[in-house]
Design a binder for these strands. Structure first.
Length: 109
DNA sequence: CTCTTGACTGAGG
DNA sequence: GCCTCAGCCAAGA
């Protein structure tokens, strides 16, 4: 058996892994790409289980470019540090030039 | 089976 | 410009 929900999670992981270096995307963008634009929360739910895997969860933020999920990381500023390490300027959990580093899977992929 | 919670988003006040 | 409400779906208690 193969629950559809598992497929959805797997899809999220796939897309998250495909995020280019120095780029970020939003939950809604991934959800739309998967055909579940109304299930943006599910993307976050899936990413929640991706932490600790090969999935760069730090590259996935909400539509405002805000690091809403930083609380799920070990450190307090770990997520921010990871993004800055890729050349993305992050100030107070807010990604600077979000539109420039934004990666849309529906168009770029 | 029902209720609550959640890494979201868009619209309205 | 900030806060609140409603909609959406899935998993855990």
């Amino acid at each position: 058996m193969k629950p559809a929900a598992l497929n959805f999670f797997d899809k999220v992981y796939e897309v998250a892994k495909l995020i280019p270096y120095g780029r970020v995307t939003s939950y809604g963008a991934i959800a739309t790409y998967l055909g579940a634009a109304q299930s943006a929360r599910m993307v976050g739910y899936a990413i929640n289980g991706s932490t600790g895997k090969d999935v760069p969860a730090h590259r996935v933020v909400n539509r405002k470019g805000l690091l809403t999920g930083k609380h799920h990381f070990d450190g307090t500023n770990l997520m921010q540090q990871l993004l800055e390490n890729e050349g993305i300027e992050v100030i107070d959990n807010q990604i600077q030039d979000f539109e420039k580093v934004f990666w849309n899977p529906s168009k770029e992929l």
